[in-house]
Simulated scan of single mutants.
Amino acid sequence: MRLFVGLLPPRQALDELARALEPHRAAWPELRWLNAVNWHVTLSFLGEVPEAALPGLHVRLARAASRHEPMTLSFAGGGAFPSARRARVFWTGLRGPELRLVRLADSLGAGARRAGAEQTDRRRLRPHLSLARARSGVDVQDLVDAFAAFAGSSWEADTVHLVRSHLGATVRYEKVGDYPLAAPASDGRD
């Protein structure tokens, strides 16, 4: 099964983002806009994982998540991978305790590896939510500039989710596990 670990932002934060994005969509027909129903923040992409690894994966992810405290996040601005001048992905960023979010992603990835689920992408997390894709590099600098002022309302990330991707004519996601961020609050420093 094809799996990733991520955050599923609350509906009100996603609706706010969709409203902010709406005036820009028609001006960029060369982008394939992702369905808002599937919007998520990937923390660790695991790729194909044997079903036999699932019990151990649940244990390791629950343990990893329990060592991290909930965080207040918000969506902010826009950017592109690999760059705004030759974008293949247009995204919105996350504002919040970035270092803690990166440490959470690292911890979840390490737990997944210990459970036998090797991450297919081990690059350091750059927190974002993908909004659109392009088959070939598209210059989206004007879109990135136009979306730079977007600052969404804050929301509480208190659970990470193990999600299965069902690929086909349309992509469908299925939650396989939920793991609370359960560490007591610290002094707020990264």
Rank of each mutant, 00 (worst) to 15 (best):
L3F: 13
F4W: 03
P10N: 08
P10G: 05
P10R: 07
L14N: 06
L14H: 02
D15W: 07
D15H: 12
E16W: 05
L17K: 01
A20E: 07
E22A: 15
P23L: 09
P23N: 14
A27G: 13
A27F: 03
P29I: 06
W33A: 08
W33G: 09
L34I: 01
A36E: 13
V37F: 08
N38T: 10
V41A: 03
F45S: 02
L46V: 11
P50W: 06
E51A: 14
L54C: 09
P55N: 14
H58Q: 14
H58D: 14
L61K: 04
L61C: 11
A62W: 00
A62I: 03
A62K: 07
S66I: 02
R67Y: 04
T72N: 05
L73I: 06
F75C: 06
F75T: 10
A76G: 07
G77E: 04
G77L: 10
G79K: 04
A84M: 06
R85D: 10
R86V: 09
R88I: 00
F90A: 12
F90R: 06
W91N: 00
W91H: 15
T92I: 02
T92H: 00
T92E: 00
G96Q: 09
G96V: 00
E98I: 10
L99D: 13
L99Q: 12
R100D: 15
L101P: 00
R103N: 15
R103H: 10
A105V: 12
A105T: 06
A105G: 12
D106I: 08
S107I: 01
L108R: 09
L108M: 11
G109F: 02
G111V: 00
A112K: 04
A112S: 08
R113D: 09
R113E: 15
A115P: 07
G116D: 12
A117D: 07
E118S: 14
Q119A: 15
R123F: 04
R123C: 07
R124A: 15
L125I: 10
H128E: 07
A132I: 03
A132P: 02
A134G: 12
A134E: 03
A134Q: 03
D139I: 03
D139H: 09
D142P: 15
L143G: 03
A146S: 15
A151Q: 13
S153L: 06
S153H: 08
S154G: 13
E156C: 10
A157E: 02
T159L: 00
H161F: 11
L162Y: 07
L162M: 11
V163I: 14
V163T: 13
R164Y: 02
S165Q: 05
S165C: 07
L167H: 04
G168Q: 05
G168S: 05
E174G: 11
G177C: 08
D178V: 05
Y179C: 05
P180G: 13
P180V: 11
A182R: 09
A183W: 01
P184C: 11
A185H: 12
G188P: 03
